[in-house]
Design a protein around this nucleic acid. Sequence first.
DNA 1: ACAAAAGTGTTCCTCGTACACCCATGT
DNA 2: ACATGGGTGTACGAGGAACACTTTTGT
Lengths: 238, 238
Amino acid sequence: MYSYEYPRPSVTVDIVVYGYDGGKQLKLLLIRRGSDPFKGHWALPGGFVDMEEDLEAAALRELEEETGVKDLFVEQLFTFGKPGRDPRGRVISVAYFSLVNLQDHPAVAASDADKAEWFSIDELPELAFDHADIINIANSRLAAKVRYQPIGFELLPEEFTLGQLQQLYETVLNVKDGFNKRNFRTRILRTGILEEVGRQQNVAHRPAVLYKFNQKTYEDLAKQRDSGVLRRALDFEI
Amino acid sequence: MYSYEYPRPSVTVDIVVYGYDGGKQLKLLLIRRGSDPFKGHWALPGGFVDMEEDLEAAALRELEEETGVKDLFVEQLFTFGKPGRDPRGRVISVAYFSLVNLQDHPAVAASDADKAEWFSIDELPELAFDHADIINIANSRLAAKVRYQPIGFELLPEEFTLGQLQQLYETVLNVKDGFNKRNFRTRILRTGILEEVGRQQNVAHRPAVLYKFNQKTYEDLAKQRDSGVLRRALDFEI
DNA sequence: ACAAAAGTGTTCCTCGTACACCCATGT
DNA sequence: ACATGGGTGTACGAGGAACACTTTTGT
């Protein structure tokens, strides 16, 4: 038992993980809650922060415990603290945000949770707590992030074609007619952050060049006070 | 007395307020702590969140109690929660961020705090807790925000000249040679977010046109999936 | 008359946009 | 041969960068 002179809120973390599998839809990782409140409802992975644990560590721990997904980069998204957002009392939740490719983070072991699953981003079930709000904020953050950081680093497999990269951007930015192929290629390649690593095999069309991201070139570009090159390359008019 | 089955962290808010007075330096609002820990040290305004109080409301309340500054817009910055960041135990702090013009938020009444004062941004005293880290993050956020939002709305008085606006950008972006006047004017005026409202009086040179921001035009531009116009106008190469 | 800051004309050139076309592979 | 996606050539125009210039005020 712990007692305090003043009442204290509880602190939790929740984590929004986006996954991409090459298709026309981003996916989102949800769990089915195994206990009350909202037992049986879908929700974001997350849980209470331990007393000696950093917030980001708590997010990664809860994610692994509930979904088996691990080895990923997260960034802080927003902290939700409105009184009444949790029926258990005053609960303040620090939300995190992450991008992964589905190949490397596929199946989903459930343990703490009842069940974990990837959902297409516009076929989400009803969600517990204010998790729908959290996801809305995460979507805005993603839309903003796309414009100044090469999200392909995180969402695509190690090697990929320019076609796949373009498909990813069209998916994330939700454009229907697609970008002009010519211009997409020119802009991306001009930056130099892509490195040629081979060619496709066994495809029923002209095999595409495979690329990977050159982390170092990217960091150099980003460092020099965003040289404009990067921004011009990523910041698509839609 | 309040008791819980599990231990809980405390939750505080801290707020980083930038002020501008037309000069070559941004200012930052600090208080001198009136009690331990760090009694007598300078720190960001802030304090404990009440149980029935929204986080943003807590930030505004503490700010007014400690500095007298009120009527301002804040946005959430980041949540700091590393164990050990506060000698009183586990304290998680949600930091907020704000921009004001010094004319409208001038003198600074101290009440809860020992004293409150505006400091030039690169002549800051030694700070309590991890507040220097918080300010570093805030500076990065400001540098990023400048590039896609017209910060003049918040940092300048109601009416201002293009020269003042340019001086502000040069200050915030920390450029020494200054932008090319011609190009600055063209870019800003092209957007149409500025509205002519008069002329300077009694100045020892050709009087400048006074402008104010047209909030509505700005919102229209921002809404249409940032039409590029805004970005091109604000996103200066440096 | 001069200092000081406001404000303008114009040139060069990069980059974004659009459209039409050719290329390599499996079936 | 043909379907399929990969990949290229090129022309037009808007906008960024740079420079030199004129204008209006108070002292």
